[in-house]
Write a protein that binds this DNA or RNA. Structure first.
Lengths: 208, 208
DNA sequence: GCGCTTCTCCCCTAAATAGGGTAGAGAGCA
DNA sequence: TGCTCTCTACCCTATTTAGGGGAGAAGCGC
């Protein structure tokens, strides 16, 4: 078989760390090249590493600098490494921040060890493993906000809103829908009145 | 065990359809309440259905109306149903459009039958199954765009861009940064020139 | 010093947008 | 038949944005 993937485990809880080390270290597909308890330890080790790690399993809440904070630095020092975040939190802020900063996977700590192993291997095969709850939140992020639009606005008005927030000018919206600019303007006036905003800026903000 | 999930399969290729029907129909966790070859058949059947379906496996490229097109209508007629899209395409436009319109999962047609079954069950458990390539594209969507801004624009200009795309007016940006409206305007002129756009609409579009 | 860039602010005109009206054509409903 | 709602389109004025110009101050490299 091919060489095992060089894996780094960063986890502050000694019990959990040993559990991960024991289990993942026994897998023939993985080789633990570093097991440490802090982000600082990882950053200090990276320049001395003979070979850069391919996989980094990173706890998100660590003493000192959090796993989130070191993500950008990590991408500088080990640009080829895939980072999988592990956390007990499933708040969307942490999730999106981690993804934005370049994590390739996001697993809850409740993930069973075999599933964790599978996730690590999936990352190396070009995947992006996410725990159920995480994947749902990521998906929900793409849905249009059901705030005001769906209930208050007419179908045509929602159509106009979609085009406006997509960045089209009123003129472009008019062309797109095959109606006059004045009509688009009339609709946007209604929209602004219904959503209690008074500019496209506010509209964008209210739908964020 | 609990009742099997009521599943609808929409697939135009007769061979594939029968394959899906055969395999998924044999699973004790699933009950195929409708197997059809077109989006129209599904829309026509829904009002007559004794019980609404819980799961809809929907091919994205269908003769007549595409699976994408009927998603909004589907969410009206069967708001509680979870929709899993299946396709040979993995272009990001289709993916994001499907997710935006309310799909709960996005699988490539290359997905093996057992994995397909697992994905369907995962949806019912609150998950959001995605094929590897799809998950990667979804994740990549959260990364900051390395397009023009970072390379071409100055630090201050990037700051202005962020505020502009956030939906603030030039006046608001001026207040935010503690400078005059004219200065903000000067910056945005430079930004437009550098990014080859000529309105905020185009700017939003170019950064999408 | 000199040139260059960046950030700041101002001038101008033209175009787009905001907000206030009015109004006709259709659809749906009591 | 009226009534209401929606979509359509136009009128008006005021504000904001776009795009052209110029210009001073500060910083950087040669």
């Amino acid at each position: 078989m091919t060489l095992p993937y060089r894996l780094v485990i960063i986890e502050d809880d000694p019990t959990v760390r040993e559990l991960l080390h024991d289990y993942l270290g026994r897998q023939p597909e993985l080789a633990c090249v570093l097991v440490a308890d802090s982000a600082e330890a990882l950053l200090a080790w990276l320049p001395d590493a003979v070979q850069p790690p391919q996989l980094i399993l990173l706890d998100i809440h660590l003493p000192g600098r959090s796993g989130l904070d070191i993500l950008p630095r990590l991408r500088q020092l080990a640009p080829t490494a895939e980072v999988v975040m592990q956390t007990v939190f499933e708040d969307s802020a942490s999730i999106f921040e981690a993804l934005r900063r370049g994590a390739s996977g996001y697993l809850l700590k409740s993930t069973p060890l075999p599933a964790l192993k599978a996730a690590l291997l999936e990352v190396m095969q070009g995947g992006a493993p996410m725990s159920r709850a995480v994947a749902r939140q990521v998906l929900a992020h793409f849905r249009p906000r059901p705030l005001a639009p769906s209930a208050v606005l007419t179908e045509r008005e929602q159509e106009i809103v979609q085009n406006l927030v997509a960045g089209l000018s009123e003129k472009q919206v008019a062309q797109q829908l095959g109606i006059s600019v004045q009509t688009v303007h009339s609709h946007s006036k209604s929209i602004y009145r219904k959503l209690h905003v008074s500019s496209r800026s506010e509209l964008l903000n209210s739908l964020r």
